[in-house]
Write a protein that binds this DNA or RNA. Sequence first.
RNA 1: GGCCCUAUAGUUCAAGGGAUAGAACGGAAGUUUCCUAAACUUUAAAUCGCGGUUCGAGUCCGCGUGGGGCUACCA
Length: 594
Amino acid sequence: MNQESFISEKVKNALEALYGASAVNLPVQIQATRKEFEGDVTVVTFPYLKTSHKAPEATGQEIGEWLKNNVEEIETYNVVKGFLNVKLSPSYWREVFGGIAADSDFGQAAPTGKTIMVEFSSPNTNKPLHLGHVRNNLLGASVARLLAANGHNVIKANLVNDRGIHICKSMIAWKKAFNGQTPETSGRKGDHLVGDCYVKFNDLYKAEVKEIMETEGISEEEAGKKAPILKEAQQMLVKWEQGDPETIALWKTMNGWVYDGFDKTYDSLGITFDRIYHESETYLLGKSLVQKGLDMGVFYRQENGSVWCDLTSDGLDQKLLLRSDGTSVYMTQDLGTAEKRFEEYSLDEMIYVVGNEQNYHFQVLKLILKKLGFEWSDAIYHLSYGMVELPEGKMKSREGTVVDADDLIEKMIDTAGETSRELGKLDGMGQEEQEELFRILGLGALKYFIIKVDPKKTMLFDPKESIDFNGNTGPFVQYTHARIKSILRKAAEAGCTPSLGHDVQILPKEIEILKLLNSFPAKIIEAGNAHSPALVANYAYELAKEFNQYYHDVTIMKEEDSSVRNMRLLLISVIARVLVKAMGILGITLPERM
RNA sequence: GGCCCUAUAGUUCAAGGGAUAGAACGGAAGUUUCCUAAACUUUAAAUCGCGGUUCGAGUCCGCGUGGGGCUACCA
């Protein structure tokens, strides 16, 4: 229990004692005391004025006096307007310190027994991953770890879009322009090679359309429909659906290249999945739900045979669920997939990490599931994130401004290397060790930069300037950790053992740090409830900053009193541990030295 | 047209209805005999506009303005 919930409970006792049993239900507003005031925890007393029938100051005094007399851990209190600042005793903090130091997995919540699926990444197999996917992947992976830290059983799922007309386009272009080329013979990473095919298809298509327009003198729209290469792609899709062996074989081969390519990107981002779904296997799901909806009267059938759900009474539109030719749409598939997942895993929550351009889709998905009578529709959460924009605006593949994930990662690692060399930090480090360090730093910078931003906001990414290694960044936290480890190594060499002596004096500065450390578990819970790893990132930064200032202000190895020195060593070792845990949730490794 | 998101220092981001809106980068000025200057200290600089709810609003509500997204028998 941290200091805030501790005081919160005591305030409830005070309210009951002072104002009667009914006062227990009054809200207890607790916050950390601002630095400019004396105290550790602040109680906001405005909500009690009506019950106490007294002025804010008098009410604060009354509650403060009761707390001081009845709670031995409370040392003093003071009242400023409607704010009651409570100061806890040194022995309280000593106990807190000991508790944290003894908890080897501090910040990890006990198992809750809840199962949560997080679906993220969900790429198309016709183009390599880009910056937008990077935000998706980093967000999804860190939310999954955050929920795991909250004690939930987490299933990381990836729904790969491996079928449809777009895949056929890549296949056609490969046959026409890349025949015989493989990732091995071309030296091109598989996902990039297939991406090239997709781009090539569009080039060929455009050329055909232009020619038809000129020779037949018809509009671009009409010519677009007549282009032979598009017809070929459509025929190929039909063949695919019929299971034509040759088509299926090529499809499998090319998708295989893409998966190899994706795996490399996932690997460098440190991303894994527990369950991979392929749309080629799930796209027929949901059709049975259409019948169910018709039977229940929540769907209706038009004369042409198409099936719809009327959502106008909920402020939305009509939603198509089955085309007149009997084929299903994306929504139908998503309904079916959701049902299957909840059945298969008895999920308590299902989180979709998908860009905000699909907000409407998920609004509709939840609503239709509710109308179909699934109680778990409320357990669906769309973790919607904003786009990543470049200084010149949105990424546009046509203008070649798409930031490729692999290029980006490589560039980050290179930059980390250059910076390290400039700073001359590489003494006595082997080549391999150096490269591993550059990877850790480059990716740390990238991950932190992206995760620290509130997911729902559009974020700006400036490839030239945005990635700093100073300030509120991943490398700052990494640097802090490396410094602590360096001190601890020296201490170990000198034979010092971090420990908390019985009568060691703990300084106010140190109590500040203990407050911050002690709020870590609550921060994890708060971040988990908000599905927001950004809160964890900001916490880690705060803590790292506290350390840097602290270390500037106190002596450790030079400290003559060995019990004080050992206490400080213990304190910084706890800081290091909490930093590792917090940054681990973000998927960021903290180096031992740098 | 309808629906959703968003607006905070020059810039990129914070701020569970609470006290004097907090950092970082960039600008100005300083600090190297515990560790590692990727650090630390000092300093200038902001809530889009108008109403409302509240003891108290950057935060909640309404209207307006700017930015973004969605509104396919595409996925």
